[in-house]
Design a protein around this nucleic acid. Structure first.
Length: 675
DNA sequence: GATCCTCGAGTTCT
DNA sequence: CTCGAGGATC
């Protein structure tokens, strides 16, 4: 019986891998989505019955396994980045100052400016001049494949004009003009369907359509504003010329694009667009400035996920007045008490807002917010509601001050605010139901153990009934325990049990994150895992040893050591293991032992064999750092095709330059390149 | 000791 | 998305 299960599990995994490839890689599925789901479900069920057969590489362990979400995933060959935001004139001047400082020049910088459309960012790929693929931005690294629906948009050329490169990826914005938006909403209301709240949602909803015919009927337009990738590479040297080059290939670009010089000209452009905004046939939410010289862009590079050579200068967000009815204090998983404003619901920035965080008591004091006040609300970045200010003259006589409660609203334990800290915390720890509930949600969350289907609602009920007190209790749940919860049938109870069983095979960083050690997030959990390899080594370490981990200082080290000194926490880890939670030992990368430790690389020019990302990943794995600009501390500059000023600077500073082959050799042989 | 950057934690709405 | 704070750097 057991051997049968083992055999069938292996068979199912092979089958699923095969169909994944047909679907995602070859784009030529052999079986229907429903049949595919059946295979996955059978595997899940078998794994649920035999947790010892669950392995980390099982398809059930993958995030968003299979085409169940109905759009397949596209990994962007060049990440689709977001832009840094500016709101004030000084933000723009600061941006310009930083650009000049980094370029080492005092000459006025030329910028390509254009309106920032309020639509949906899209990447379009053309092969040999023919439209081949469209993908949404997604999280920047991977998006959704929307090729079929985007092909129906009239502004998307099926074939490019003139001499098109073998591979071309362009980036742009799909948007719905206001007139079309109004007409569409009239039609939809007339048909008894729900209208869209704003043109951006309408555009996004129209593109994310499984039925391309629906997209075809929607009044969508497209402006292209940039390049993702091109091979062979021959695009113009300036952003402004690039737009002309793209137009010659048959793409629409913004007719309002302009070239300006220096920050004051940027601001003039901004004011001109702000004045014109109301009369434009589509919605814009700001303007974008890009350093016009693309070689200079290259030199400026990126910080985190944002290019240093571009700025989105946003128009002020739409604001609204409403009444602050009450303030409640929420308890987070670490015990932090957060004041949350309960507002008279108000429609602002495309959604109805009824709650807004006040962050902490300092913030409340700074803005002098009181219950009963009329407040100005906006959605920061058009997403998170925020109280901007109170309207002092409308304050009623009986407005109440907001007081930090002395006792936790959930468990009644004392609330303390450490000297010099902005936040107040409940001291109840694990005895506090609210902290327990939030800690359990964190454990089950996507970044930690990723237990699909174990959402807030379910956890709330399990905590309320005291059926689950610690994360280890999840692994004792049976279908019967779940089936009598609200909104839970026998079928979904079974699925959830299977998902919990599936989460047993996991990784060390996920477990470390899930434990909820103070100040240990995703990045720190990964760094700790790489350094110690397994949890026993970490538990045995003292503060000095934990501080050896990159980016871990005295504060974080103390939190880690204190966590593992607590016998309840040691027991939790034992209990998790006992109930079948498993993770492979992580290959230890000790900084001092890593072959390229202490070396800093700078990549410049176009690499042929490797992408920039791959090269960075490989170097970091070997203990090296990869920086964006050349300095005295740079160990090697890797010069690819068309290497620019970084190479010049390296020569000036006497930094050794190597070519791509030397880089590849260094990675392969795991030793520093010869100088 | 000041400054820059990155990370963590908490949050909203659909 | 925002704020605060820890860590690294100059």
């Amino acid at each position: 019986m057991k051997d049968d299960a083992r055999r069938r599990v292996a068979e199912l995994r092979t089958l699923i891998a095969h169909h994944d490839r047909r679907y995602h890689v070859l784009d030529d599925p052999e079986i229907s989505d429903a049949d595919y789901d059946l295979l996955v479900r059978e595997l899940r069920a078998l794994e649920a019955g035999h947790p010892e057969l669950v392995t980390a590489d099982s398809p059930t362990q993958r995030v968003g396994a299979g085409p169940a979400t109905s759009f397949s995933v596209v990994v962007h060959r060049v990440p689709m980045l977001s832009l840094g935001n500016g709101f004030t004139d000084d933000d723009v001047r600061d941006f310009d100052r930083r650009v000049r400082k980094l370029l080492g020049s005092d000459a006025p910088v030329e910028y390509a400016a254009e309106p920032k459309l309020d639509g949906l960012a899209i990447a379009l790929i053309y092969r040999d001049g023919s439209f081949a693929q469209a993908a949404t931005r997604g999280d920047g690294g991977r998006g959704e494949d929307v090729t079929a629906s985007v092909a129906q948009i009239r502004g998307v050329p099926q074939r490019l004009a003139g001499a098109a490169p073998a591979l071309l990826e362009v980036r742009g914005e799909i948007f719905m003009p206001l007139a079309g938006f109004r007409r569409l909403n009239e039609e939809m209301t007339a048909r008894g369907e729900k209208a869209f709240v704003n043109p951006r949602n309408a555009a996004a909803g129209s593109v994310r359509q499984l039925d391309p015919e629906v997209t075809r009927a929607r009044p969508l337009e497209l402006f292209i504003y940039g390049l993702g990738d091109v091979a062979p590479a021959a695009p113009p040297r300036r952003q402004s010329e690039l737009l002309g080059w793209l137009r010659a290939l048959g793409f629409a670009t913004s007719p309002l694009a302009a070239t300006v010089s220096g920050p004051e000209a940027c601001l003039d452009y901004y004011r001109r667009l702000a004045a014109e905004r109301a009369s434009l046939p589509y919605q814009i939410d700001g303007v974008v400035y890009k350093v016009n010289d693309r070689q200079a862009q290259e030199r400026l590079g990126f910080i985190a996920r944002e290019p240093r050579w571009a700025l989105a200068h946003k128009f002020p967000a739409e604001e609204a007045f409403t009444l602050l009815r009450d303030v409640e204090f929420q308890v987070g998983r670490t015990g932090v008490l957060t004041p949350v404003a309960r507002l008279e619901p108000v429609f602002v920035g495309g959604a109805t807002v009824s709650n807004a965080t006040l962050h902490n008591m300092d913030e409340v004091a700074r803005k002098d917010i009181r219950i009963g006040d009329t407040v100005v609300v906006r959605r920061a970045g058009d997403v998170i509601p925020e109280i901007v200010a109170v309207v002092a003259e409308r304050r009623p006589a009986d407005a109440r001050r907001i007081e930090l409660p002395a006792a936790c609203p959930s468990c009644g334990s004392a609330v303390v605010r450490e000297e010099g800290e902005a936040v107040a915390r409940c001291t109840g720890g694990f005895r506090c139901k609210a902290q327990r509930r939030e800690a359990l949600k964190h454990f089950a969350g996507r970044r930690a153990l990723d237990i699909d289907g174990l959402g807030d609602r379910i956890i709330d009920q399990l905590v309320e009934r005291e059926r689950v007190r610690s994360p280890a209790d999840f692994y004792t749940l049976e279908a019967g325990d779940l089936a009598n919860l609200d909104r839970m049938g026998a079928k979904s109870a079974q699925n959830l049990v299977a998902a919990i069983a599936g989460s047993r095979a996991t990784t060390l960083p996920r477990v470390l994150l899930g434990l909820g050690i103070r100040d240990v997030g995703e990045a720190t959990a990964l760094a700790l895992s790489r350094h110690f390899g397994d949890i026993e080594a970490l538990m045995a370490a003292d503060e000095a040893q934990v501080q050896q981990v990159p980016d871990v200082g005295p504060v974080v080290a103390a939190h880690v050591v204190r966590f593992f000194a607590d016998s309840a926490n040691r027991q939790l880890i034992g209990a998790l293991r006992e109930r079948g939670v498993r993770w492979p030992v992580v290959p230890v990368v000790r900084e001092e032992e890593a072959p390229l430790a202490g070396l800093t690389f700078v990549l410049t020019g176009t690499l042929a064999a490797l992408t920039r990302e791959k090269a960075t990943e490989a170097l970091v794995a070997l203990g090296a750092k990869v920086a964006g600009s050349v300095s005295k501390k740079t160990s090697f500059v890797v010069a690819g095709e068309d290497a620019g000023s970084k190479l010049d600077k390296a020569r000036a500073l006497g930094v050794p330059a190597i070519d791509e082959q030397a880089l590849v050799a260094a990675i392969r042989e795991r030793k520093p390149p010869p100088t």
